[in-house]
Design a protein around this nucleic acid. Structure first.
Length: 271
DNA sequence: ATGGCATGACAATCATGA
C-alpha cells in the first residue's frame, strides 16, 4: 500500500469538521496536517476524529492559529517524539507540530502571514522562517525521511500566482519571502508538487471575496516539501480543489502527496 | 485609496487573514 500525506488549512476546524469528515471518508489519507484549527486543545474534536479512524496530535490556542496532525489508525501506529513548538524560538503562537511515525519525521507548520511587507508582522514572519530553517537543518541530519507540510504563506514563483504583476513585491510574493522558501529547499528538501508536470494556474488558496475561486484568481501557498529519500519515493502530488467548491468552504484546498510502498520499510542497513 | 468575505470573541464592532 502506498502512503498518502496531506496538508489543509481548514480556517476553523469547528466549522470545517463536516467537510473534513466527508473528505476523509472518501479519501482516507494516512497523514493529515491541519492549520488554523482556531481552537484550544480542550475543545479539539478528538473523539469525532477517532470515530473516523484517526489518532489526533494537536497544538492549539483560542481564536487564532493552531495546528494538528491526524494519523490513520488502520495503517499507522502511535506517534513518537511529538514536538509542539519550535525549540529555541520564543513564540506564543501555535504554529508547529512534529512527530515520528512509520520511520518518517512529519512536520506540520502554519507560517505567519506577514500582513504587509515591512510591517512588524512581516519581520516576525521572516524570523519565524529563519528559526524553522535553523531547527530543520538538524532534523534533516537526523531523519533521512522527513516531510514538511503546511501553509507556508509564500508563493514561490510567478507561476504560483494568478496575476504575477499585480502581486509583484507584495506580501506572500516578496523577494525575502521567496528567498526564505528557497532556503528551505537548500536544506535538501524538494517541492513535491513540482516533481511532476502540473496544470497551469494550479493554486491552493483563493480569496473569499470577488468570486476569486470561480475566476481562478488564486495563489499556491500550501506546500509539501520532501527530503531526498521521500522525493524519490513520491509518485504523485495534487491539489484537491473539490473542497473549495463546497458550501461554506475553507479558503484553502488540500494538497496530497502519494509515496511508494517501500517508504514504510525500515531504513536500509549501513554498508 | 479602500473594501470586498469569513471567522472568532462578544455582544456592535474589531482583529486577523492572504
Amino acid at each position: 500500500m502506498a502512503l498518502t500525506l496531506a496538508t489543509w488549512n481548514v480556517n476553523s476546524l469547528k466549522v470545517r469538521l463536516p467537510h473534513l469528515s466527508t473528505w476523509l471518508a472518501t479519501r482516507p489519507v494516512d497523514v493529515v496536517c491541519l492549520q488554523e484549527t482556531k481552537m484550544s486543545d480542550d475543545s479539539f474534536p478528538q473523539q469525532e476524529l477517532a470515530d473516523l479512524g484517526y489518532r489526533s496530535y494537536f497544538a492549539g490556542q483560542k481564536t487564532y492559529n493552531g495546528v494538528a496532525i491526524l494519523l490513520r489508525a488502520a495503517t499507522l501506529g502511535e506517534a513518537g517524539s511529538v514536538l509542539r513548538a519550535l525549540p529555541e524560538f520564543e513564540d506564543a503562537q501555535k504554529r508547529l507540530i512534529a512527530l515520528d511515525v512509520a520511520g518518517l519525521r512529519v512536520v506540520c507548520a502554519y507560517f505567519p502571514n506577514g500582513q504587509a511587507v515591512g510591517s512588524e508582522k512581516y519581520g516576525y514572519k521572516l524570523q519565524w522562517i529563519a528559526a524553522l530553517a535553523a531547527w530543520l537543518r538538524g532534523e534533516i541530519r537526523g531523519h533521512e525521511r522527513l516531510a514538511l507540510l503546511g501553509d507556508f504563506n509564500v508563493a514561490p514563483e510567478a507561476r504560483d500566482v494568478h496575476d504575477p504583476a499585480l502581486w509583484e513585491g507584495q506580501i506572500l510574493c516578496s523577494d525575502a519571502e521567496r528567498e526564505a522558501f528557497r532556503g528551505l529547499l537548500a536544506l535538501g528538501l524538494h517541492d513535491a508538487f513540482r516533481l511532476f508536470e502540473q496544470p497551469e494556474r494550479s493554486f491552493t488558496w483563493w480569496d473569499y471575496r470577488d468570486l476569486a475561486f470561480r475566476r481562478k484568481m488564486g495563489l499556491r501557498i500550501d506546500h509539501i516539501l520532501l527530503s531526498a529519500a521521500l522525493a524519490q519515493a513520491c509518485e504523485r502530488c495534487e491539489i484537491d480543489v473539490e473542497l473549495r467548491r463546497l458550501e461554506r468552504p475553507s479558503d484553502h484546498a488540500p494538497v496530497v502527496a502519494t509515496l511508494a510502498e517501500g517508504v514504510l520499510r525500515a531504513p536500509a542497513e549501513a554498508p
